[in-house]
């Protein structure tokens, strides 16, 4: 079955990101397809490549990155949520004349239409809210 996941919570603030990651691992292990993970609201912080949690704690960015590379996942951060929070890629950094960008290379910035597309094209959309 084809799943899509929406993540609304920031890492280390709520359990949302961790639950979504566990759910993603489980559905892939069961042989299902993960069509897209859409990071919304504070969920966009999952895409920040410069987070540096203590080494004995879960590194959510690295976990998403490893999972995406292994399964060729489409990880999308909402552009409206991300720009407000300072999670930007090189293109947006240039557009807004910012000194740096931080969005990880396996993530893409896109619009809310990608969530609608996921809801339409996946058999199940599972949302992990704050």
């Amino acid at each position: 079955m084809r799943f899509a996941i929406s993540v609304h919570g920031g890492p280390y603030t709520s359990q949302s990101s961790h639950s979504a990651l566990n759910f993603a691992h489980a559905l892939l292990a069961e042989g299902h397809e993960l069509y897209r993970v859409f990071f919304y609201h504070d969920g966009v912080y999952n895409g920040s490549s410069i987070m540096a949690p203590p080494q004995d704690e879960l590194d959510l960015y690295s976990e998403w990155r490893a999972l995406a590379q292994e399964h060729h996942l489409d990880l999308v951060v909402c552009i409206a949520s991300a720009l407000r929070r300072g999670v930007i890629d090189r293109t947006e950094a240039d557009r807004y004349d910012k000194a740096a960008s931080n969005l990880g290379d396996v993530f893409t910035i896109s619009g809310l239409g990608q969530l609608i597309d996921a809801a339409l094209n996946a058999d199940r959309l599972v949302t992990f809210r704050v």
Binding site: F23, A26, E30, V126
Partner: peptide, 20 residues
């Protein structure tokens, strides 16, 4: 249920509604 059971329950349901 474990997470695999959570996934299985999602496949059995027509849709999943999140209350928060």
């Amino acid at each position: 249920l474990d997470y695999a059971g959570f996934v299985a329950l999602c496949t059995q349901a027509e849709k999943v509604k999140t209350w928060a």
